[in-house]
Design a protein around this nucleic acid. Structure first.
Lengths: 132, 132
DNA sequence: AATTTAACTTGCATTTTGAAAGTTAAATGT
DNA sequence: ACATTTAACTTTCAAAATGCAAGTTAAATT
C-alpha cells in the first residue's frame, strides 16, 4: 500500500491494514509458526496466493525476515524482526478489547489478566520467547 | 465481514480490519469530527461511497452511533460508543509503534511521551474529552 | 424563489481477493 | 536409483471490493 498520509495510525495501517497481515504476525508471535505451511493452517484459512503476497510485503516492509532452513532446503523460516515484535502491544490491546466486547470468545483468562495487571512483564516475557 | 474464527485478534479485525474504519475512529476520537463532510475531508481522502458503507458497518457493529442534529436537520452527528472509545488503547499503541519505527513522521512528542509514561492518565483524559 | 449545503446513492471501471489447480526443487521411501 | 511425497510457492480465472465521477434529495440560506 502506498503511503496515504503522515498520520502515525495511517502509517501502521499502510503496513498491516488489511484482513490478513496481522494474523500472520499473530501466528509468528503467539503460536510459534515459522513456515509457509504452518501459516496456511491457521483457523482463518487464508488463500495461498494471498499468504504469499502478504509475506512478500511484510518482508519488504521490514516486519519479517525469510531464510532457508539449513537442515531442509525446501523449508523457508519466517521470523519477526524487531519492528514486527513491536506490534505486540497493539495485538495485546486487541485481545483486551475482545475480552471486554466479545466475551463469548474463549480467550485465555490468564493472558487477559496479565495483559492488564502486568503489561510490561508480559511483553518482556513474550518478547523473550519470540526471540529464542 | 463475516466472523472468521474465535480468535480475539481476528475478531477485532472483523470489525476494523480494513484500510478505512480505524481512520474514521481516529477522526472521531482525536480530531473532534462528527459529520459526514468532516470525515470526508481527512488527509487520506476516502471515497464517499466507501465512507458511507463503513459508517453503516461501524454503526451496525456497535462502534458508532448516528443521530440527526436538532439544530440543522441536514446534518447527522456521528459519535463513538463505549466500544468505539475502547479502541483508543489500540490506536495509542499504533502511534507509539510509528514513533519508534517511522520517526520521519512528525508525531506530537508530548503525546508519545505521555502515552508511554502516563498511559492510564492519557486514556482517562482523552476518554473524558471524547465524551463531552 | 433560487441557490447552496449536507448527506448521501448510483453507475461503471479498476483492483483486490479467493478458490482451485498446477509447478518446481528438495527430501524421503523402497 | 527411482518413484513418491513434501514444501513453497505460481497461475488462472471468477467474484467481490474499491475508487472515481456524476447524480439525487431534503433542508437551510440568500
Amino acid at each position: 500500500m502506498p503511503t496515504r498520509s503522515q498520520c502515525p495510525i495511517s502509517n501502521v495501517l499502510d503496513h498491516v491494514g488489511d484482513k490478513w497481515s496481522l494474523l500472520i504476525i499473530r501466528d509468528l508471535m503467539f503460536f510459534g509458526k515459522h513456515t509457509y505451511s504452518d501459516l496456511q493452517n491457521s483457523d482463518e484459512k487464508m488463500a495461498t496466493n494471498i499468504l504469499s503476497s502478504r509475506l512478500e510485503k511484510l518482508e519488504s516492509d521490514g516486519l519479517i525476515t525469510k531464510q532457508s532452513d539449513p537442515k531442509d532446503k525446501r523449508k523457508k523460516i519466517y521470523r519477526l524482526t524487531g519492528a514486527g515484535i513491536d506490534m505486540l502491544p497493539i495485538l495485546l490491546e486487541m485481545i483486551i478489547w475482545s475480552s471486554k466486547h466479545a466475551p463469548e470468545l474463549n480467550i485465555p483468562n490468564e493472558l487477559v489478566y496479565r495483559a492488564q495487571m502486568d503489561r510490561t512483564g508480559l511483553i518482556e516475557d513474550l518478547t523473550l520467547r519470540i526471540l529464542q
